[in-house]
């Protein structure tokens, strides 16, 4: 599903910061991978490289067999729209849309009419336990509820790849646990590949592979055999 070969990414002109350095990584279909490491170790950069929001300085990034650097900006955007669901620490919901409209939005981007997209979004909201909150705007929802909406939005088009950037980073432990259970169950159901950047070992415990980064390099790559939706 994901293949990184000799990927490096640096920033700046004078004082160069090496965010990712000569990274090789392969992630297979339906894997659940946690990426951990201290701040500045390159976790978010790795995520940005994989979803095509950023390009590598050197090396190759392939997603679903496609070499991202060979794709145009529009093609990378289309890849995100059709194959990659993203969940952010700060939720990044569209503030002017209701929960239902936020979830339906990716389908509408794919060309579905509102009347077709919104029933699917409504059933997705039921799946994440927000049946009664569908008409609320993000500022009327709690942090946990916002993240549920974000998960529903990420999964609405059954993405091959689900990327999470500290999905529980802004939540209390109870809400965080709920979100992780939900994510775990849905990921298993949809058979999406999950790649989640986290500082939280509780969150990492839901994955069957933990990659640890330091100074832009993989320093540990551990695999576990865990049943879905069970946690540690």
């Amino acid at each position: 599903m994901i293949q990184l070969t000799g990927v490096s990414k640096s920033y700046g002109l004078g004082k160069v910061v090496q965010a990712v350095s000569g990274m090789n990584l392969q992630i297979g279909p339906a894997e659940r991978v946690a990426v951990m490491g201290p701040s500045g170790s390159g976790k978010s950069t790795l995520l940005n490289l994989i979803c095509g929001l950023d390009g590598p300085t050197a090396g190759s990034v392939k997603v679903d067999g496609m070499e991202l650097s060979a794709l145009s900006d529009d093609a990378r955007t289309r890849l995100r729209r059709e194959k990659i669901g993203m969940i952010f620490q700060t939720f990044n919901l569209l503030p002017t849309l209701t929960a239902l409209e936020n979830v339906a939005f990716p389908l509408r981007l794919q060309g579905l009419a509102k009347k077709d997209a919104e029933p699917r979004a409504a059933s997705m909201l039921v799946r994440v336990g927000l049946k009664d909150r569908s008409s609320h705007r993000p500022d009327e929802l709690s942090g946990g509820e916002r993240q549920r909406v974000a998960i529903a939005r990420a999964l609405i088009f059954r993405p091959l790849l689900l990327l999470g950037d500290e999905p529980t980073g802004n939540l209390d432990s109870v809400s965080g646990e709920e979100i992780l259970r939900l994510l775990d169950g849905l990921q298993h159901e949809y058979a999406s590949t999950l790649l989640m950047v986290t500082h939280n070992s509780q969150a990492a415990g839901y994955c069957n592979r933990i990659i640890t980064l330091h100074d832009g390099r993989i320093v540990k790559d551990e695999r576990f055999d865990r049943a879905p939706a069970t946690g540690r």
Binding site: L53, D74, T77, R81, N92, L93
Partner: peptide, 15 residues
Amino acid sequence: WKEIGILRSLGVERR
């Protein structure tokens, strides 16, 4: 500003 970022991350092309 941020809305544009979200739209782009959700797959809305520049054009």
